[in-house]
């Protein structure tokens, strides 16, 4: 179980590097998305490790709000580049 947590945290830091270096905005957004899903995975593993199953609700909120920021990002660039 601790191995699973360590691997998912490794995924966290990889996403951090991609956000930091990412040449374009799309890369940064992608990093944020990986952060969201690996955050949900971390919370799930924590729920099993701490035997506190109410943490599952947190992961549910993580999963259902994952797309909101991406949609906001796309809507921003779309409107800015639209010929009015």
């Amino acid at each position: 179980m601790i191995v699973v947590a360590a691997l998912v945290l490794g995924s966290f830091s990889a996403a951090l590097i991609r956000i930091w270096r990412g040449p374009s905005g799309a890369d940064r957004m992608m990093g944020a998305q990986l952060f969201g899903s690996s955050g949900a995975a971390t919370v799930l593993v924590l729920a099993a490790m701490l035997e506190d199953w109410s943490l599952i609700d947190v992961a549910l909120v993580f999963a259902s709000l994952a797309a909101v920021t991406v949609v906001a990002f796309v809507e921003r660039t779309e409107r800015a580049s639209m010929p009015q």
Partner: peptide
């Protein structure tokens, strides 16, 4: 935004669901 995610994981780790 990513900092918000990490803060949330920290709260979950502390048991504050």
């Amino acid at each position: 935004v990513t900092m918000g995610v990490v803060v949330a994981v920290a709260w979950a780790r502390l048991g504050a669901a």
